[in-house]
Simulated scan of single mutants.
Amino acid sequence: MIRDFFAGMGYLWGGFRTIARPGMRRYAAAPVLVSLVVFVALAALLGWGFDTWMAALLPGGWDWLEWLLWPLFALGILLVWVFTYVHLTNLIGAPFNDLLAERVLAESGGAPPAEGGWAQILREGARAVGNTVAVLVYSLRWAVPLLLLTLIPGLNVVAPVLWLVFNAWLLALEYADYPLAARGLAFREQRAVVAGERPAALGFGLAALLVTSIPVVNLVAMPAAVAGATRLFAERGGSIAPRAEAPQGAG
């Protein structure tokens, strides 16, 4: 189990090596550009709002409390940043991530790259966006109980660990969509496949969560995670067939 966990983390580092290769860079260029735009927009929004929110929290004459509240507020901002950044970049970059995943699959002996032009890109992008929304709905179902747990004295000491595991699991599910959808699997079926590789999936998701929280590095985190997850589930999640052949392999 521990070996699988660290193997899962290794797939993310392998994803960075994959997108750095000359033949793969062009497929990673668009996701990196999407990450850059989202990064700058969120940084500007949070930077502008930080002082405003602090001023609203502290009434006149209480500015001296800022040094106490700042670390807590900054931690909250970081958590919101990571959650929002990951899902926004995946939502906007979904069509380009599909192209990258198809190229990685082709190198792994899986489905060949789609040749349907922009119509194919839009169809695959719509599917990927739909899966991202499904992950968000799924996350809300579990986030509410975890949020309540943080309010219960005594039990809330385990809440940070549970949140960490939960977010790692969500990232594994989100990035697993790209290779598993090539088998024609719906989100519910994808969850079963990812659960079958739970230690590796959690290791991968935790590594993705960590690099996403590092400024500048997170600009290339998304394409690296797409490439890494594609290889992970191509090699460990069973044979990935082209979409048209998926019904034949379902049994």
Rank of each mutant, 00 (worst) to 15 (best):
R183L: 02
N167R: 13
F166Y: 15
R231D: 00
L210T: 15
W62Q: 11
E174A: 13
Y175Q: 02
L185Y: 11
A225Y: 00
W118A: 12
V129S: 04
A143G: 09
P199Y: 11
A200Q: 04
P71R: 13
A224W: 05
L219P: 05
F16I: 05
G60R: 06
R26G: 02
V165K: 04
A106N: 12
I77T: 14
N156M: 11
F187A: 12
A221Y: 00
Y85S: 03
V34Q: 05
G23N: 05
A7I: 04
E124Q: 15
L12I: 10
P59W: 09
G60E: 14
W67M: 10
A224E: 07
L78W: 13
T150M: 14
D63F: 03
Y138T: 11
F6K: 02
W48V: 04
L148W: 10
W13C: 08
R236T: 11
L79S: 10
A234Q: 07
F204T: 09
V86A: 14
V86E: 14
D98A: 15
A234G: 13
A225I: 01
V220K: 01
F73P: 00
A200S: 07
P247F: 04
W64C: 02
L46I: 15
W163P: 00
T89K: 00
A182D: 01
A20C: 07
M54T: 08
P223V: 07
L232Y: 03
A201P: 00
G47R: 11
F166M: 06
L42E: 09
A192Q: 14
R188G: 08
N167F: 13
E174Y: 00
